[in-house]
Design a protein around this nucleic acid. Structure first.
Lengths: 254, 254
DNA sequence: CCGCAACATTGTCTTACCAATTTGTATGTG
DNA sequence: CACATACAAATTGGTAAGACAATGTTGCGG
């Protein structure tokens, strides 16, 4: 079934968006008139209007009355952190998290309440239990753990930033796989690292908390390096073997 | 003219949004039917549809075919940093910037190129010249200064974050006024602080850079505290004097 | 009490029509 | 020829009425 059950205007909006992003309608150019688009996509004019309005709300086009619909430069306001996933390397992301979550941990250490502390301990237990069996490494307890800390800072900007960076991370396949690889490779150490962070929180020791958090991330970073390297190597091997099939050495003798 | 020249669907969407945010239609509740809304706002049904689609694109409602349109909890994804300005205190924002820009400065100190260093020096000179006369304190050179540093980190996530936080700050009147107040009160010190940051960069001294940046922000924070306090005081005075006019003491004798 | 069928409600999409605005072009005037 | 004005074509803005599909509701019969 190519016919999805999504609403029509959405399908049209997606198609138009595809045309925009593939360069058919570059930034600044004018889209065909409503009637023209209606005919091209075999829908009515109101539906086109709805699709255009949806694109307008997303900040991808502007409508000039009596003139036409124009493609606009996607601005930071609308692209936000969500659209960042495609253009940014996993290293940059993790590096940011080192700094931000490191400082958040330092701040949280002196602000965390007893109630939050028990929640944190609970999350730690869950992490231990979560992956006792089963391949698909779960990170919900992991995220919960970091989330509690970010909320303990009592700074909504900080916790929003942290949660957004986590969202971006989960969209980045590289990083998600690397994260999984790390967890599977040495889950005990992951737990130990989180426990170190937890202990620092209990002691309300800022510096200890910051250091523990940074250690946690720096191990993730090195693990990511390794995974990416391995991936690159196997990619090269794959290509070489393809080449070998495509151009067998024996051929030369023909 | 109460009748704005905005497009009709936008006006309707704004009105509905107002009703949602004022609690008339709480989260989870169902909006009146298209036909009903059309009658209530004296517009046609397609216009209501367009308004609803706009709200849907903004993530404020979901529409269930055959059932109705429902108000949804505004999620981080859609609220983003842009909509953050309204719900967040200036203190939280500045605190975040202390941490993030502090670490950015520390990182930049060891990564900054000679070319960026000269740009930074140029921005510093501009800052000195900029406000030599004229009341409206300009911050373009200031922002440029911080922007160069954030770019010197070679981390696009970090520099995007910093630029977004700056955007939010410029939308917050409190903070903008406080910033201006600080600059006007003691512009020489502002320059000195920036020069300290610059010097640390020249020496490529991470710790010095971090400390200098944090000092810069912490002075902003205390200044902000003072301004807010003054504002609150004068607000109270204003209300008291209003009361005095409204309920003059002489009235009692009538 | 449960299941199912008929009915009412609601969103979905279309066709058709007219109004308001912009924009290019011709035309007239200096 | 240069420039301003008027007009016409193109385009979006908005409305009206109706057919259709998905969903919820009601009441009937078992």
């Amino acid at each position: 079934m190519s016919n999805s059950n999504k609403r029509l205007y959405r399908q049209i909006a997606d198609k138009i968006l595809l045309l925009i992003e593939s360069g058919v309608y570059p930034v600044g150019s004018r889209l065909p008139s409503e009637r023209e688009l209606a005919e091209r996509f075999s829908v009515s004019r109101p539906t086109i209007r709805e699709a255009v309005i949806a694109l307008e709300a997303k900040g991808r086009v502007t409508v000039r009355t009596g003139s036409g619909v124009y493609v606009v430069e996607p601005s930071v306001e609308f692209a936000g952190l969500a659209g960042l996933a495609k253009s940014v390397s996993p290293f940059e992301l993790i590096e940011s998290r080192v700094f931000i979550e490191g400082e958040a941990a330092a701040l949280a250490a002196v602000l965390i309440t007893d109630s939050q502390l028990t929640q944190l301990g609970k999350a730690l237990e869950d992490m231990a239990l979560e992956n006792i069996e089963g391949d698909p490494v779960s990170v919900v307890a992991d995220r919960k753990f970091h989330s509690i800390i970010s909320e303990a800072t009592n700074n909504r900007v900080l916790s929003l930033l942290i949660s957004q960076l986590w969202d971006v991370q989960e969209e980045l396949d590289n990083i998600r796989l690397a994260h999984q690889a790390v967890c599977m490779k040495d889950d005990a150490q992951r737990l130990a690292e989180h426990r170190a962070i937890f202990d620092a929180m209990v002691e309300k020791d800022s510096n200890k908390a910051r250091t523990a958090m940074r250690n946690h991330f720096s191990r993730m970073l090195t693990a990511l390096h390794e995974t990416i390297e391995q991936e690159a190597v196997s990619e090269v091997q794959r290509k070489v073997s393809q080449m070998r099939e495509r151009f067998p050495v024996g051929r030369m003798d023909l």
